[in-house]
Design a protein around this nucleic acid. Structure first.
Lengths: 261, 261
DNA sequence: CCGTTTGGTTCCATTATTTGAAACTTAGTC
DNA sequence: GACTAAGTTTCAAATAATGGAACCAAACGG
């Protein structure tokens, strides 16, 4: 984990530290962070101090532990409302969940990884942050492949470099070559499948959410299990899913520029 | 330097820019940001580029606008789960809401401002300012005053310096002196009131959430309107509210150090 | 009780990054 | 085709970050 690609500048390092604190999932002591990172003591210290002073981290003086700060929660609120597709897509996800009766995922791309920003479990809708924020691999999930298939060449290249190509199941596409070939097929077909590539028994059919100009905003998937259904049955829902994706895209675009005059 | 207090180092400036983008509530053009900040063109440009490269901002190439990035949502997930009292407090808020039938707010302090981290609406909800994820002033809200009343001298001083003391209503405490006097009364009494100091017709009774060592973790308020109830009636709930606050504090403390030999 | 370790904080000369005025490159107008 | 507005790049000077080492404090061990 220490080897974060190219942490440009001080800001990159600071954000790297932020991620490090976040990844622990609980307040961390200075020395834990020091052991984990390969920053020198003084450097890490000042980085932490700056972040704390900025409210991005909070130092618990009783325990000498660092936790993520409230300023992050505030920014998060804005990010959620503004940048993510989730608030726009909410009613559409409800509709799709109701019509298909299956689990629905809404995902966006985050530096080569898939970020699930919203979800509907076949039964019940969930709280804001409870589901948002989970990340997963791009190369072996339906939503990931759907987004990669329509990514720009540069974005694709960057993303490919960040994939681990770990062989989760015996269906996993475990080389860039296999993946690129699959992406072409997906583009031709218009939707992506997950053929138990990430988790045994889990299958899905995913479509990209595209602007009119063809840029990828995110992806939408209908997920189920081999026990309950088949890929062919899921594919029957692809038309509906694409329709929903198009409506989300349309609303996302109009929502972002209400001052068109 | 500019209007922003003390933006130490490059990281501070970058976060400042992040806030600036967040505050717009919608994607912003470079030139808008340039006009708003007093950073020189090139500086702001590189700052934005760094943040974008780091995934904290997202540049919409179609429109040339910047929005908050998905990495922020991911961090938010961690922040929400880890740093905020919200996940711990959730069941207690439910209980308090059920027993009082009024609106409940859970807040924490964010650089001199009040951050509402969770909320329960009354059976008959009232339109008001506070919302989860939103920030508000400290000097004229119940939760704000409750937290300030038990803040350390240093924290109080810093916070005071950041208050605007804008006179929202004719009940607003509009000078540091009045506020400090009120804080003393609050400490003596054990809970804070909001006597329509922020919004006309809105009253509340708030208590701090304190660790055993006396450190402020947050505050909890029971809020209503003058039309529906009185301060005295709200004060009757203070005991219950304090009890809930104590239970939240206890759980927050034990939750943070499960590895206690 | 004192020497030692552990965990955290500060110094400061060196080094590398950031800075920002100005020059430049596009797109878009008239 | 000249003129503008908006965004991008350059480069020497200014500034901030760096990190080895020294320092401090509290806990530990004999």
């Amino acid at each position: 984990m220490g080897a974060e690609g190219h942490a440009d500048g001080t800001v990159g390092k600071a954000l790297d530290v932020l991620d490090m604190v976040a990844s622990h999932g609980r307040p961390v002591r200075f020395s834990d962070l020091l052991a984990q990172s390969d920053y020198p003591k003084a450097t890490l210290y000042r980085l932490l101090q700056t972040l704390t002073h900025q409210g991005m981290l909070a130092l618990d003086p009783d325990q000498g532990t660092y936790a993520l700060g409230v300023r992050l929660v505030r920014l998060a609120h804005a990010a959620w409302a503004q940048s993510s597709l989730a608030p726009i897509a909410r009613p559409y996800l409800d509709e799709l969940a109701a019509k298909t009766g299956e689990t629905i995922h809404l995902a966006q791309m985050d530096l080569g990884q898939v970020l699930y920003v919203d979800k509907r479990n076949a039964a019940r809708p969930v709280e804001m942050f409870a589901q948002a924020g989970k990340v997963g691999p791009a190369y072996c999930t339906g939503v990931g492949k759907a987004m990669l298939a329509w990514a720009t060449p540069e974005a694709l290249e960057q993303a490919l470099a960040r994939q681990s190509f770990h062989r989760h199941t015996d269906q996993t596409l475990d080389t860039p070559e296999k993946l690129v070939a699959e992406l072409q097929a997906i583009r031709a077909r218009g939707h992506a499948f997950d053929r138990e590539e990430h988790e045994k028994g889990i299958i899905c059919c995913a479509v990209p959410i595209l602007t009119r100009s063809g840029r990828v905003l995110g992806a939408l998937s209908v997920t189920s299990t081999t026990a309950r259904t088949t890929l062919a049955a899921l594919e029957d829902q692809a038309g509906l899913t694409k329709d929903i994706a198009a409506r989300i895209a349309a609303e996302a675009e109009s929502w972002r520029f209400p001052e068109q005059s």
